[in-house]
C-alpha cells in the first residue's frame, strides 16, 4: 500500500498521468499544492480522477488557499495536514510525484 502525492496541475504537466499509470488499486493518491487542480468538478481531468484505480484525496488547505472549496468534484474527499500525516502512517511508504 503506497501513498502517492502529486503536486503539479494536470493542466500544465503530465505528472498526474504518470502517477496514475504506476499506481495500484490498493494505493491512495493525495493531490497537494497545484495537484489539487486535478480534482475540479467539470474540469477536463475530473472524469479521469473520479474513475482512477487508486483512492483519490485532496489536501484541503491547498484547495482552500486557491479558492476552490466550491469547485471540488463531489465524489472526492479531502484531508487536512493531520489526515495527511495519518495517511503516511497507514501506508507502507510515500512516493512523491513532482
Amino acid at each position: 500500500m503506497i501513498l502517492h502525492t502529486v503536486n503539479k496541475s494536470p493542466y500544465a504537466d503530465q505528472t498526474l498521468l504518470s502517477c496514475l499509470r504506476a499506481a495500484s488499486e490498493k494505493d491512495t493518491l493525495l493531490l497537494i499544492e497545484d495537484g489539487v487542480y486535478g480534482a475540479l468538478k467539470g474540469g477536463e481531468y475530473s472524469a479521469l480522477v473520479e474513475s482512477a484505480a487508486p483512492r483519490i484525496l485532496v489536501l484541503a488547505p491547498d484547495l482552500e488557499a486557491r479558492g476552490l472549496l466550491d469547485k471540488l468534484s463531489t465524489t472526492i474527499a479531502t484531508v487536512d495536514y493531520a489526515g495527511f500525516v495519518e495517511l503516511t502512517v497507514t501506508h507502507d511508504k510515500v512516493v512523491s510525484w513532482f
Partner: peptide, 30 residues
Amino acid sequence: FSLAVYGSPYTYQSSDSAYQFARELLNQGH
C-alpha cells in the same frame, strides 16, 4: 520520519508544505 525538501523557498511551495507537515508530525507525537 525524515523529510527531503527539493524546492527553493519563495519560488516553490514545497518548503512551506514540508514545514506544515513537519509541525503536524510533532503534534501527533512522531
